[in-house]
């Protein structure tokens, strides 16, 4: 069995596990929607104001919803001892981590990105901005998974691990937020937004390439 087949097995396993506990995905979605609902309550419902802050608010809400799900990435496998078995599999651990990242992205970030247009409509964003919001979320969230995954591995099993994870990861994710909401903002300003999107894509490629290796190193530390 080759490495790719191993990748597929881990991916399939994690998706199956997520499917058995599909309520968790809904929790993330509900959190996303709630945060997005809070802003009009706080700043007032004037359509123009909402239209202006919409891209930023939705990106922040998506970022936080993704962040909330990050501890789940390794915690379940760590607590029941499966992580040791995964690391003992006769394949590169970084491949296992990459597969877990992919599965995590599929079950958490993808639903969030697909749910985003609903909220964008609530904020009165026109179609072009809705599409760019989804596109930027699709391209940008892999970076959150990758960098956040390193953080999740580093903080695995620590006291206050979740708060620490947020502290470690949020400053690193500032560029994602800037380019992500910037892309939608550029569309709103009548530009194409492709520059921001390409920068996001470049960052996504780099982080997805290097992060599994670093996270695998961090995981080894966590199980010693």
């Amino acid at each position: 069995m080759g490495v790719l087949s191993f990748f597929a097995s881990v991916l399939e396993r994690d998706v199956l596990l997520a499917w058995r506990q599909r309520g968790d995905v809904l929790l993330g979605l509900m959190f996303f929607m709630l945060v997005a609902t809070l802003f009009p309550l706080a700043v007032g419902p004037e359509p123009n104001g909402l239209l202006r802050i919409g891209p930023g608010v939705l990106w922040v809400a998506a970022l936080l919803a993704n962040l909330l799900a990050l501890p789940r990435l390794f915690h379940g496998d760590w607590i029941d001892g499966s992580l040791e078995q995964l690391l003992l599999a006769p394949y590169p651990p970084s491949m296992m981590v990459a597969a877990k990242f992919a599965a995590h992205w599929l079950v958490t970030s993808l639903p969030l990105a697909l749910a985003a247009p609903l909220l964008a409509i609530q904020y009165g964003l026109p179609l072009a901005q809705c599409l760019m919001l989804v596109a930027s979320l699709l391209v940008g969230t892999p970076i959150i998974t990758a960098l956040g995954g390193i953080g999740a591995a580093l903080t695995l099993g620590l006291r206050q691990g979740e708060v620490l994870l947020a502290l470690l990861v949020l400053p690193l994710l500032a560029p994602v937020l800037i380019f992500g909401s910037g892309a939608v903002g550029a569309v709103a300003a009548g530009q194409s937004g492709m520059a921001e999107l390409s920068l996001l894509a470049a960052m996504a490629c780099t982080s997805v390439f290097f992060a599994p290796w670093l996270a695998a190193k961090a995981l080894r530390l966590a199980i010693e």
């Binding site: 596990l17 058995r20 506990q21 379940g76 607590i79 029941d80 001892g81 499966s82 040791e84 078995q85």
Partner: peptide, 9 residues
């Protein structure tokens, strides 16, 4: 020490 089993499977 731990069984390395997934509860839901």
């Amino acid at each position: 020490h731990r069984d390395a089993l997934k509860d839901t499977l």
